[in-house]
């Protein structure tokens, strides 16, 4: 007679993946917002495939838009296999700080579980914050999961504020990813949706001294190599 397995109900480990999308008016210029919509649409099947490769992680996706204030575009953590993208529209300013504050609320325990995998926060923006970015970042970093999240930034066009994005990333070894044309944006978003997702879902432990309040030079998740990018401006293809 088979015995019942000791313990309660089992569960795979949740991996929260959150898109933070700049929907300010400048994103409407030269089709940036539509390129962003297209890029996420194209990346979704690859993201689902990457998630399938690790059945012990449950990838839950959300999206937050920021322009005049910030709102959840997809508020419920949605299993990636059920996640569908609805196009964003651009208008207004760049309240990035508000977006970080709203994400910070979701990084508390609860609603987050202490058994979760490190969340992945992906910021996509073409400009500079118009509100109190530092306050939002402080609130995010005050949360255990905010501090331990894998934070990736994609700078759309040459007007993006790289210094601000580097502060958001909080890891001097990982730079903001530049995307100066639609193809580059697609490639960046695909990389985040697959390689970064895969790395974050791996259960390997990392030895850390935990008495350091400020972690600013490394990630608790081994970030895979960023695909090479050209360093010079391409006057033909770089439309942003």
């Amino acid at each position: 007679m088979a015995d019942r397995r000791p313990g309660g109900a089992l569960s795979t480990r949740p991996l929260h993946f959150i898109w933070l999308c700049d929907c300010s008016g400048s994103m409407a210029v030269d089709g940036k917002i539509q390129s962003l919509n297209n890029a996420i649409q194209q990346a979704l099947p690859l993201m689902r495939k990457a998630a399938e490769d690790n059945p012990n992680a449950q990838v839950l996706v959300r999206a937050l838009r920021f322009s005049d204030g910030a709102q959840w575009h997809v508020s419920q953590p949605t299993p990636v296999e059920q996640f569908h993208w609805t196009d964003l529209h651009a208008d207004g300013v760049t309240d990035m700080g508000k977006a970080l504050s709203m994400v910070a609320e979701q990084m508390q325990i609860p609603p987050m579980s202490d058994r979760a995998l490190p969340p992945v926060l992906v910021m996509i923006t073409d400009g500079q914050p118009t509100d109190d970015f530092n306050r939002g970042l402080r609130e995010l970093m005050a949360q255990p999961w905010g501090k331990k999240a894998v934070r990736i930034a994609i700078a759309v066009g040459q007007q993006a504020d790289y210094e601000i994005l580097q502060k958001f990333i909080g890891n001097i070894e990982l730079k903001p990813l530049s995307a100066n044309n639609p193809d580059a944006l697609v490639n960046r978003i695909k990389w985040v949706s697959t390689a970064v997702l895969k790395a974050a879902s791996a259960p390997a432990s990392q030895a850390q001294r935990l008495d350091d309040g400020q972690r600013d030079s490394a990630s608790n998740v081994p970030i895979p190599a960023v695909p090479p990018e050209k360093t010079a401006i391409d006057p033909v293809n770089d439309v942003w």
Binding site: L117, P144, K148, Q206, A207, R209
Partner: peptide, 15 residues
């Protein structure tokens, strides 16, 4: 230990 989240752990190998 509430600090031990996100696969981070104290270890025999840390100084």
């Amino acid at each position: 230990d509430d600090r031990l989240i996100a696969n981070e752990t104290t270890s025999l190998c840390t100084s």
